[in-house]
Amino acid sequence: MKKKPVSVCAEINDDNAVKLASDGNSEAFSYLYEQNVKRIYNYIYYRIGSEQDAEDLTARVFHRAFGHIGSYEEKGVPFSAWLYRIAHNLIANWHRDNFRRKEVSLEDQIDLPHHGDLPEKMVERNQEKEMLLKAIRNLSPDRQQLILLKYLEDLSNAEIAVIMRRTEGAIKSLYHRSLIALREELEKNEKYHVMEK
């Protein structure tokens, strides 16, 4: 049976927003949108490295969430976990569809020059940053997700475990392996750069 839109002017807060939104309250959905849009955008942005595509995918995440909120069931998991999962799937589709498309360099768009920096220092810093971001994006999607959730969102292993549907121990182990893989990627890139020079 289809749920009827709720027109009750209840005060929307963190506790009731999801319930109200799933009952058809559009104001509650707007509230959830405001709470989550920045984090979802950031997550997508760092995963794909293009501002325009990040906006497009962020919009798709929320449109999809809006379309399925009626069937969303609260299971004691943060609402953002559901959004991250939608984003994760859409990013996977995006990578599949854009496999041959040349991606815009993430570093070109993020780094704004700091006033007062010497040009050489700026170049050096940019190169370091470029290499690190490139290495992150060469990791598997799960490892990228874990690193971004940990550093962008500052989430604990327990919180990440909920989002990624794993145990806390598995996340701890995955994190350690991700760092090792990241370091190996960086070493590979460094060797490549030395050979190029």
Partner: peptide, 30 residues
């Protein structure tokens, strides 16, 4: 690894999405 963690926390800083985009998407959804 700890050094790498320091680098990650320096590089991975949240970015602010374009407010025009945020507002227009909110409007479309509402």
């Amino acid at each position: 690894l700890w050094g790498l963690e320091d680098k990650l926390s320096k590089v991975l800083r949240p970015v602010t999405p374009d407010p025009v985009f945020v507002d227009s998407l909110k409007l479309k959804l509402s």
